[in-house]
Every structure is written in structure tokens, then in C-alpha cells.
């Protein structure tokens, strides 16, 4: 394989107290590709994402980032590596505007004062680069934005910070049809820029529309990680619900 995966996990185990959530999970995400992470409720998707993002580190297993083994202790470690996790509850400050949110925690300053002009220009060019043009003004408060626009701001933040890996937890869960379409286009554009994108979704249409690979979790086991073109809609649903589909998935 010529391309080094941005993220490679091997033999990941994770328990919360007596409850074991992840069993010997392997997972890879490649640059320039959208990897969909699917699975039923309680399959361990969120736990896996929290481990990737350093929120709840894994108990054991190997974590490689761009080929090098790393240990994550906190979300800050993940951010420093270039991992941006966009959580389901968007983690934006509604009382701040778009620019302020995009630069939150990493403000540019000139001496003591904030470099507002520089930040605004950078935010505008990043959003334009993603062909996001429906915001009106980058100085709008996030509280004025629709769900899809908020999702866009969260994604744009990942691009602005030169992230290598973006993990999206159900980005379209609360969105309408048109907005979902916009967000999926954006997800595709992120991957086309060379980022590795991990997309968690329950919606098979979304998954098949944008993903290059599909990884399926079933009760804490990674039952299959396949190219999207190699499987059918029905096979994926079977993998999600019963852990196997024909030759794929758990051994009989």
C-alpha cells in the first residue's frame, strides 16, 4: 500500500468500569478519503471517536498517527497532532460571531490586542475556499445561523487549523434535506483537499453518497472495513444489524 494512513488503530480495547465497550478494534483512515463509521446504537462508535479525540483514552492497543505511534492524554494532544473532532452537539459559542468561533482558543494577537482584521480576512478566505457562500457576513453571531450553517462553521474551523484528520459525529442528524446536502458536499470537499475524514452516520444514503470506505462496528467489534464500491446497501445494513453478511463480518 503506497499511502500512509493518517490514522491507524490496532487491537484497541476500552472498558468503562466493568462494561467492555471495544474489543480488539482495528481502524484506518486515509488522506483524501471519507471513511464512514457505521453501527447500531451502543456499537461503540462514540467511544471510538472519544478515544481518537483524546477525550477518553483507550485502555490498550496501538495508535498510529501518520505512521508514528502516539499516546493521547487529552483533547489538546489530539488538536496538537491535527485531529479535529466535530461533536454532535456542535461546541460553538452562540454569543460569539463566526470569526470569533473559528479562532476560539487560538486567537491571533498584535501585542496585547486581538488582530481582528487578520482573523476576519483568514476566516473569509477559508470559507470561500470551501465554497461556503451562504453566510451573508462572517460577523454574524452563531446564534443567528441555521443548523447547517453552524455545522459549516465547525467544519471550517478544522480546515483553518490545518487539521490532518477530521472526525464528524452525525453532522446531518438534525438537518433538513437541503442543508444535509450542503454539509455532505462540504465533507466531500474536505476530503478532496487531502484531509482524512471520518464520518459517523446512521443514514445509509448519506454514507453511500460521500464515503470511500465503510467501517462497521457491531457490539464493540470491528466486523468489516471495506471500500464503498465493493458492497451494497443491503450488505451494510446486515453487517450493522447482525455483524455478518455473506463472507463479510464475523466468522460463522
Amino acid at each position: 500500500m503506497p499511502v500512509t494512513p493518517v490514522l491507524e488503530l490496532r487491537g484497541i480495547d476500552k472498558s468503562y468500569g466493568a462494561v467492555k465497550v471495544l474489543y480488539d478494534v482495528a481502524f484506518t483512515a486515509y488522506p483524501g478519503e471519507v471513511t464512514a463509521l457505521v453501527g447500531d446504537n451502543g456499537a461503540g462508535k462514540t467511544t471510538l471517536v472519544k478515544g481518537i479525540g483524546g477525550v477518553h483514552p483507550f485502555d490498550s492497543g496501538e495508535y498510529y498517527f501518520e505512521g508514528a505511534p502516539v499516546r493521547l492524554g487529552s483533547p489538546r494532544d489530539a488538536a496538537a497532532l491535527g485531529i479535529e473532532v466535530v461533536h454532535q452537539d456542535l461546541a460553538l459559542c452562540e454569543n460569539l460571531d463566526i470569526v470569533e468561533n473559528m479562532f476560539l482558543g487560538r486567537e491571533r494577537t498584535r501585542g496585547l490586542a486581538l488582530d481582528e482584521a487578520g482573523m476576519e480576512a483568514a476566516a473569509t478566505s477559508t470559507l470561500s475556499g470551501l465554497s461556503v457562500r451562504t453566510m451573508g457576513s462572517v460577523r454574524r453571531r452563531v446564534s443567528d445561523l441555521s443548523g447547517g450553517q453552524r455545522q459549516t462553521v465547525a467544519l471550517a474551523r478544522a480546515v483553518l487549523w490545518d487539521s490532518r484528520l477530521v472526525v464528524l459525529d452525525e453532522p446531518a442528524a438534525a438537518l433538513g434535506v437541503a442543508q444535509t446536502q450542503q454539509v455532505l458536499e462540504l465533507v466531500r470537499r474536505l476530503a478532496d483537499k487531502g484531509l482524512a475524514v471520518v464520518l459517523i452516520s446512521h443514514n445509509m444514503n448519506d454514507v453511500f453518497a460521500v464515503s470511500d470506505r465503510i467501517a462497521t462496528l457491531y457490539l464493540g467489534h470491528m466486523v468489516a472495513q471495506v471500500r464503498t464500491g465493493d458492497v451494497t446497501h443491503r450488505q451494510v445494513v446486515e453487517l450493522i444489524t447482525s455483524g455478518r453478511s455473506g463472507d463479510l463480518g464475523l466468522p460463522r
Binding site: 489538546r76 488538536a79 456542535l90 459559542c93 452562540e94 482558543g105
Partner: peptide, 9 residues
């Protein structure tokens, strides 16, 4: 949003 601020570092 204290949680958002925390996640932003």
C-alpha cells in the same frame, strides 16, 4: 458555552 470553550482549548 463553557464546554465549547474547553474543547477549543
Amino acid at each position: 458555552n463553557a464546554e465549547a470553550a474547553r474543547r477549543a482549548g
